[in-house]
Amino acid sequence: MKPRLVVAQRVTEAVAARARAGFEAVLSEGEGMDAAALLGVVTTHRADALLFGSSTPLARETVARLPAHLRIAASIGVGFDHIDVAAARTHRLAVSNTPDVLDECVADFTLLLILAACRRAHEYEAIMRAGWRQKFLLDDLLGLRVSGRTLGILGMGRIGRAVAARARGFGMPILYHNRNRLPPEREQGAGWCASLGELAERCDILAVHAPGGPGTEKIVDRAVLARMKPGSVLVNVARGSLVDEQALLEALGSGHLFAAGLDVFQGEPAFDLRFAALPNVFLAPHMGSATRETRDAMGMRALDNIDAVLAGREAPDALWRP
């Protein structure tokens, strides 16, 4: 008899096919489920496993009410600030994420946002879609050259290091801030800053790659933005919660920051529409990992975690371990 699976949101075709082949599966075509809908379908389907994502939050009270036949909740994505991991541990529910498989793709997108913000891609594209037909003088609409500028990376994990590798191709000196200094073979010449404030002061472009959650709420706050050099650039592909958006709007509006590239926001998808009124931002709808290859790999990795737990092994990407 096949194990029983609930898929709480739409997944790619290849992932859906594997879910149907290996499980008695109920697949949602929606974007995610609230707690009531989730508890309902997991219970009525007598699910052994749950495949879900950040649009289906597993808060403490939701975890407490999940039926005991559910053995694993495997999340698609690397961030897990939508999961109360401590509650999962208390209730002995295995939970997992999908690290590694999206690093390259998110790093590519980070460089895209850096280039787009520095080289004014939104303004340039808007000119074209309006039909162009105007000549520019030599000092019209000048952007910032990316090559040779100092890149500051907040959070030098796998994605941060993949960003550094790409930035080196542009001859960019790299600085980073991390709780702990990395060993030299992982620094690859990048300079460590003991504080985020020091990093903000010394870099020209700040890329944010920290995890979300209460511990990092608004770590890029008004004071950090104020310490950034006049004319510098902020890029965020990690979590909207990391940045004080009111302070960022002011810094972009005043010209203290030259530009920003944003893939993530507080309250997605109902983000602060004041960003859409600014010319000096490049906006993206949380698509850092949005390639066919990566979205397939993320779903497959989540299913690998489910297979392991249902076979009596530990999830390879378990978020808590005994």
């Binding site: 994502g53 891609a121 859409a276 698509m287 390639t291 779903g299």
Partner: peptide, 27 residues
Amino acid sequence: RRAGEGERLVRAGRWSGWAPTQLVGRG
């Protein structure tokens, strides 16, 4: 990575949510 489409979608206030299949581009 379909950044032009993504930019226009967000800026027009038409962003309705996240899905694994939305705006999937080429690696």
